[in-house]
Nucleic acid binder design. Structure first.
Length: 500
RNA sequence: GCGUCGUUAGCUCAAUGGUAGAGCAGCGGACUCUUAAUCCGUUGGUUGUGGGUUCAAGUCCCUCACGACGCACCA
């Protein structure tokens, strides 16, 4: 048998060579694709834990394990032995194929390639150089890999191929796999944390006649059955508060949200948000809950109180710093209350700071730009910015003693807004007036102003208890806890244009 | 949407406007504890697409595609 007959090295010929080995395996009665199951005795990390005690040169005294995984590299030592690295989801482990143990089984080893999925039964031992290894007594090809893997040393680097063929990225760049597992652990921990505190998880619609609850352009689609336009949700806020009105007192949803807007380091058109609402509490209750969630997430990610991100050390230890919106603008921007509340003065301040603003920019937009330019660059350690102006907060309850401002906070970490919470506005008349103002802005030609959801006002008219609510940007939290520079590094399949 | 940069072998990267190269992977050979194994030999290219300038283009100019970064957008 000479699988190496095709000696060329274009991709097509590399594949042909591997197909020849597949044919040889089949001819030997070892069709890898015919198998349906493989019973493992250990994951690779379990082997590492169970046989960690072996000294260099020591064997496991005849004990055997059965493991499976992908061959990551093969080192041939003469005609009769091969060392290979095997990886599974849990770890990497070396295996040793030798004719002394395998006998005629060794013929299969000659037909193996990097990338093949194999099962191995054998005896654990530690090599003279100290590496825990499984000496194979039996080898089973569980899937032949027909395509060449990226280079073993530099791995797969090209970001375009990494995102397009994430499965290859995952198999050869272990930190990518680790980040995705950490993401899963963080979300599971948050869910567990909230479930233990008695919150009820619900699922609200993604397809809506009218997407509301935030100021963002929605994706638009169409229902053939109903022959009507539909929008993908931009927030879960309004439906979750309908749940509060209906009597689900501690409610949350972890789910995908869609915004038809720019893509950059911290924005993907679809992203994951946790939104939570609780009756009979307020923004202070949300603040304590928020600290608990960040700690639970950090713990799940095995991140301690001191954590380096983006070249800066973060101290993730509650209580987090607090600073009011006005104090922050005063301290970092030298701006006053009037510079914010008065539209003309806000524009003048923006001009002083050299901000390029569209003449059509609305008052809220100008104020937001002022904050972004002056305050955000200073917010590295977790910081609650509190008591925002009502003009930026159409769904939050006013402060009793200062009705131009609301009971709200945003949590900033590493310059990013990670959470946003407030005492929910439950006065239907105030809500209606704020919606009417937005409707006027919309009618006046501001396409960004949201279309009011009048049914939500009706829901408030039935009576919503005093309620605290919070939204947490899960992707950004995961970015911080996994040291990811880009949101794409915490998403399995970030949005890409179709390949040329 | 705008700007800058990038796209060369399966992967990672070289190449004054003058014969497209290396390492890894592959293939053949040597090697019974290797681990970026090592050593000998060897194959592999429509230089992202389409035009242009030139005696001559991977290289210069333009178009388009895709990507990265920045800006804009995203309270």
């Amino acid at each position: 048998m000479s699988p190496g007959a095709a000696t060329g090295v274009t991709e097509a010929e590399l594949i042909k060579t591997r197909r020849a080995k597949l044919a040889a395996l089949r001819a030997a009665g070892r069709d890898p694709y015919a198998l349906t199951t493989f019973a493992r005795s250990h994951t690779l990390v379990a082997v590492r834990e169970a046989f960690d005690h072996l000294a260099a040169g020591e064997h496991a005294g005849g004990a055997t394990v059965t493991v499976a995984g992908r061959l990551q590299s093969m080192r041939r030592m003469g005609k009769r032995s091969v060392f290979a690295d095997l990886t599974d989801q849990s770890a990497r482990l070396q295996v040793y194929f030798h004719t002394d143990r395998l006998g005629p089984e060794f013929e299969a080893v000659d037909l193996l390639d990097r990338g093949d999925v194999v099962g191995v039964r054998g005896e654990p031992f530690r090599t003279k150089s100290g590496e825990l290894t499984v000496a194979a007594d039996e080898v089973t090809v569980l899937a032949k890999s027909l395509r060449p893997l990226p280079e073993k040393w530099h791995g797969l680097v090209d970001p375009e191929i990494r995102y397009r063929r994430r499965y290859v990225d995952l198999m050869v760049n272990r930190p990518v796999l680790e980040a995705m597992l950490t993401r899963s652990a963080i979300i599971a921990a948050l869910r567990r944390h909230l479930d233990e505190l008695g919150y009820v998880e619900v699922e609200t619609p993604i397809l809506l006649a009218l997407a509301g609850g935030a100021n963002a352009r929605p994706f638009v689609t169409h229902s053939h059955a109903l022959d009507m336009p539909l929008q993908l949700r931009i927030a879960t806020e309004l439906n979750l508060k309908r749940c509060i009105v209906g009597g689900i007192e501690k409610v949350y949803e972890i789910g995908r949200t869609f915004r038809n807007e720019g893509v950059d380091r911290t924005h993907n058109p679809e992203f994951t948000m946790l939104e939570l609402y609780e009756a009979y509490t307020d923004v202070e209750g949300m603040l304590r809950l928020c600290e608990g969630m960040v700690v639970a997430a950090a713990h799940a990610a095995r991140v301690g109180e001191r954590h380096e991100y983006g070249g800066r050390e973060l101290v993730l230890r509650p209580p987090f710093a607090r600073m009011s919106y006005l104090d922050a603008l005063r301290e970092f921007g030298g701006l006053t209350r009037e510079d914010i509340l008065d539209e003309a003065r806000a524009r003048a301040a923006a001009e002083r700071l050299g901000l390029r603003l569209d003449v059509k920019a609305s008052h809220p937009h100008v104020v937001d730009k002022l904050f972004e330019a002056t305050v955000e660059p200073h917010l590295v350690n977790p910081t609650f910015i509190t008591e925002h102006p009502v003009l930026l907060s159409p769904l939050a309850k006013r402060k009793a003693e200062d009705p131009d401002f609301v009971e709200r906070f945003e949590l900033y970490i590493a310059h990013m807004e990670v959470a946003n919470a407030f005492s929910e506005l439950n006065d239907p008349d105030d809500q209606r007036e704020r919606f009417e103002r937005q409707a006027k802005e919309r009618a006046a030609g501001d396409p960004e102003a949201p279309e009011p959801d009048w049914d939500f006002v009706q829901a408030l008219e039935y009576g919503m208890p005093p309620t605290g609510g919070i939204g947490v940007g899960i992707d950004r939290l995961v970015m911080i806890l996994t040291n990811a520079d880009s949101i794409r590094d915490v998403l399995l399949f970030p949005l890409q244009r179709p390949e040329a």
